[in-house]
């Protein structure tokens, strides 16, 4: 990590998150840029809960969200400035900002969906991430008030809590594609799948009945999508070793599972799963298809044909801050109280 003299928090707000077709096809809530800016302002305010003054570095973006955020931060008791970087208006911006933060930040706050978090995780290294959900059906980030998230980040950055104890090491997934089309690798954070649909289209996974197979690095029924389907059969915590491999069938047979799951916001389905087994870190899980699309974290990413897709789960992902744990420890350590706890009693 970088400069220890001033506790530093990086802020990444993705202006493109939360605007996909699931606003039409499911019950996804809207996350407009005005709301994102308001949330991000709360994050900056939250930083002031920490005992030391925080330096906040904000990613600039093509929509001027970050720029406006910094411009309006005069009355916040923190050193707020813009990260010096080139703006491309693409997901590259997020990765470039995260890469810089990996050198200089003690904690980053990410406002975005699973896609944004995946982009951050590829370059953020070991810097703890506080993830606020502004995206659509999010598995990794949490819907939480910006002030609370900012306060958690401030506490982590000022080192008043034990970072190991308040973070979870999230897993990742990689898909290696060997096919007539689409060969190469695609990476994901929480879920990856193979969809029987000929094109990327509007990107979002709309119909889970099109899944042929996939793998997840975590699983729980409250997680919307593939990890929620798997989680209905067996759960897997984000920091558990390995993950789950999945195969889907047309109908229930002897060794199949029929799962009720929340598949898209606002949509509950019965899903037939022919296989859902624990896979070790690094263990290949292969699914093949004539023509389909590889998905990562709920989005269609690559069209493939005549392909064998091998998913592998890795345990060495980003450090995700568990927000309640931060505050529990802060209380236990008397960080938030103006007087030592003993004297108060």
């Amino acid at each position: 990590m970088g400069d220890r003299s001033t506790p530093t928090v990086g802020v990444i707000v993705n202006p493109a998150a939360g605007r996909d077709i699931r606003r039409l096809t499911g019950g996804a809530s809207v996350s407009d840029n005005y709301a994102k800016r308001r949330t991000a302002t709360c994050v900056l305010q939250g930083l002031t809960l920490a005992p030391d003054r925080i330096r906040a570095l904000v990613m600039p973006d093509r929509a001027d969200l970050g720029q406006r955020l910094v411009g309006g931060a005069d009355d916040i008791d923190a050193d707020v400035s813009l990260l010096d970087m080139q703006i491309t208006g693409t997901p590259k911006d997020t990765r470039n900002a995260a890469e810089q933060f990996s050198d200089v930040a003690d904690c980053v706050v990410v406002l975005g969906g699973d896609g944004t978090n995946r982009d951050v995780s590829t370059t953020i290294g070991d810097v703890p991430m506080v993830s606020i959900s502004t995206g659509t059906n999010n598995v990794v980030p949490t819907p939480i008030d910006g002030t609370v998230a900012g306060a958690a980040a401030g506490l982590v950055a000022t080192d008043v809590v034990d970072i190991e104890a308040v973070t979870q090491r999230h897993g990742t997934i990689e898909a290696t594609i060997d096919g007539k089309a689409g060969s190469g690798t695609v990476s994901g954070l929480a879920t990856m799948g193979l969809l029987d649909r000929p094109f990327i289209g509007t990107r979002a996974v709309l119909d889970v009945s099109e899944f042929v197979g996939g793998a997840v690095s975590r699983a729980f029924p409250t997680e919307i999508g593939l990890s929620g389907i798997a989680g209905g059969i067996q759960t897997c915590a984000p920091d558990d070793a390995g993950g789950l491999g999945l195969r889907f069938g047309d109908g229930p047979d002897a060794d199949a599972h029929t799962v009720r799951a929340i598949t898209v916001p606002g949509v509950v389905n019965t899903v037939s799963v022919s296989e859902c087994v624990r896979i070790e870190s690094g263990e290949p899980w292969t699914v093949s298809i004539d023509r389909g699309v590889v998905t990562a974290d709920g989005e269609r990413e690559r069209e493939v044909s005549d392909a064998e897709v091998t998913f592998t789960v890795s345990d060495a992902g980003p450090q995700i801050v568990t927000i309640p744990a931060v505050f529990q420890q802060a209380v236990d350590r008397g960080v938030l109280s103006m007087q030592p706890i003993e004297q108060k009693r």
Partner: peptide
């Protein structure tokens, strides 16, 4: 209301179909 990649005919097709 949502935004799609207009350079990808399949995205437009799917969006308008929905």
């Amino acid at each position: 209301g949502f935004t799609i990649d207009g350079m990808d005919i399949t995205a437009v097709y799917e969006a308008v179909q929905e």
